[in-house]
Every structure is written in structure tokens, then in C-alpha cells.
């Protein structure tokens, strides 16, 4: 008899996830649910808004260093980015840029549990996501920006790009990372292109184990609250910011991979692993 872990990180909702990554007792929330800054667009479309608009902004410390940890709540509208949640993320990251500039080293961790844009407020969400992208790129020059994708929603759409821009991405086997989600691809391109009910097949393509194996994420971690928190601290303890160029700056490697893929065939997850580690099909 083997018992599973006592505290799966995926069992925590956004607020508890943020708290778990900050030093004990240091969590302080910016614009908590009682600030009642919620989406003005959802009620008009018959959707009950949520007091934090599905985004939790936490300040505190990580190993004693000032930190901002932001999280999207996958249980609210699939973690979709709307005007308010997007603005909360973008401005808190921009504030971290300012803090760093003004001499207060500030770490930034982004917990990504999101389908991307919230369709009910898509244009405003898109604008916010571009601001989030800019802030992540700017923050990278001060130190590692850590992304965490554990599930159960995964990370898709414009926020999949945000994950790609981080300097260090931590995933679990259950986490998924992609641009279009499997259901969207099946709807748009047909079940011959992709069967979204083949869960094992989906995870083999875009799950955490595969993303780490092909170098699109750095750390594979168990779905365990203590393990995820340790993995985040380890990034700052062991990896100076300048050690490895960020994934999104490795243009040549990306071009080589693209050139090696034959889009007329149907490469398997194993093929992609071989290609990305320097082999060929």
C-alpha cells in the first residue's frame, strides 16, 4: 500500500497557492475580494462576477526577499483574463519592475491556471495580456521570473505565451501548456486532426513531462504543495539570472526545430523529443 501525497498543490485554490509559495506569515493581498473590484462586464452577460475577478495578487517575501506572487483562479471562468484580472496582474508586475529599479530587489512568481482570454471581455483581456508580456520581459533583466503550471486547467492562449516568456517554468505531470486547447483544435480542425477525448494522447503532447523533456519548461515537480514551494525557492537559490538565456531569446534553436518538423507528416511526442534534443526524425 502506497499513500498519495497529503497536500496536492492542485487542491489549493488561487489564494492558498499564493500563500503556500511565500514565506510563512508574510502573505499580504493587494485588492482582496473585499475591495470589490470586480468585472463590470460579466453581469451584463448573465454571469455572476467574483470579488477578486479570479486574480489573486500577493506580496510578501521568498527566503526573506521581497516578492510578488500572482495567481489566476482556474475555478472562476476557467482562469480567463478579463479587464480587471488582467489589470491586476499587469500592474502588480509593473510595480515589481519599479521596485527593482528603485533599489528593492523584488522576485516575481506567476501561477498560471488559465484558458487565456476571457471571451466575454476579449479585447480588454488582449490588451492586458500584452502588458503582462511586456512586464515579464522587463522583469527578466532583474532576476528570474518563475512561472508555475500545475493544473487542473493548464495554461493556454495568450497566457501560454506568457508562460513561454518566463525565465523558469515549473510544471507537474498533470499541468498542460499550449496555445490552442485540445477542444478548440478539435472543434476548428475536426476530430481527425485531434481527438480531445484521448486524454493520455493530449498529455503526451502538451503535458508537463513532455514540456520539460523538450526544453519548453525547466522543472518537473510532484503535485505536492511542499515540493512546488521548494522548487520555486530553488530557482532563486541556485540559478543566477544570467546563467541561461531565457527560452524566448533562443531564436536560432527555435528556427532549427521548426525547419526540422515536416508538417505534412504527423510527428509523435517521441519524434518531437528527439528533434528538440538535437536528433532528427
Amino acid at each position: 500500500m502506497t499513500r498519495p501525497v497529503a497536500q496536492p498543490f492542485t487542491e489549493f485554490r488561487a489564494r492558498d497557492r499564493v500563500r503556500a509559495l511565500l514565506d510563512p506569515g508574510t502573505f499580504r493581498e493587494i485588492l482582496d475580494p473585499f475591495a470589490r473590484v470586480e468585472s463590470p462586464h460579466l453581469a451584463l452577460q448573465g454571469i455572476v462576477p467574483q470579488g477578486d475577478d479570479g486574480a489573486v495578487i500577493g506580496r510578501g517575501t521568498i527566503d526573506g526577499v521581497s516578492a510578488v506572487v500572482v495567481a489566476l483562479d482556474g475555478a472562476f471562468q476557467g482562469g480567463g483574463i478579463g479587464e480587471v484580472s488582467g489589470a491586476k496582474l499587469a500592474s502588480s508586475l509593473e510595480q515589481a519592475v519599479n521596485d527593482n529599479r528603485n533599489g528593492t530587489p523584488t522576485r516575481a512568481v506567476i501561477l498560471l491556471e488559465t484558458g487565456g482570454i476571457r471571451l466575454q471581455e476579449a479585447n480588454l483581456g488582449l490588451l492586458a495580456i500584452s502588458e503582462i508580456h511586456s512586464a515579464i520581459v522587463e522583469l527578466r533583466s532583474f532576476g528570474p521570473v518563475v512561472g508555475v503550471v500545475v493544473g487542473t486547467v493548464g495554461c493556454f492562449g495568450g497566457m501560454g505565451i506568457a508562460a513561454g516568456l518566463t525565465s523558469h517554468l515549473i510544471m507537474t505531470r498533470g499541468g498542460r501548456l499550449s496555445l490552442n486547447g485540445p477542444e478548440v483544435i478539435e472543434t476548428e480542425a475536426g476530430i481527425e486532426e485531434l481527438d480531445s477525448s484521448d486524454r493520455a494522447g493530449i498529455w503526451a503532447m502538451i503535458g508537463g513531462a513532455q514540456r520539460v523533456a523538450i526544453g519548453q519548461a525547466e522543472t518537473l515537480v510532484d503535485d505536492d504543495a511542499d515540493a512546488v514551494a521548494a522548487a520555486v525557492r530553488d530557482v532563486y537559490r541556485t540559478a543566477p539570472a544570467t546563467a541561461v538565456p531565457a527560452r524566448s531569446t533562443r531564436i536560432a534553436a527555435g528556427r532549427r526545430l521548426l525547419a526540422a518538423v515536416d508538417p505534412t507528416g504527423r510527428p509523435t511526442p517521441t519524434d518531437i523529443r528527439n528533434l528538440s534534443t538535437g536528433g532528427s526524425l
Partner: peptide, 19 residues
């Protein structure tokens, strides 16, 4: 977790996997 409890003996079908 069920797979873990079973010591790897339970082999869930593809539609129930998240890995």
C-alpha cells in the same frame, strides 16, 4: 492518487488520465 494507492496495479483508461 488511486494509481498510487494501488501500487501501480490500476491502469486507468486514456479518458481518465491527466498525465
Amino acid at each position: 492518487d488511486l494509481v498510487t494507492w494501488s501500487g501501480g496495479l490500476y491502469d486507468p483508461p486514456a479518458k481518465f488520465r491527466s498525465w
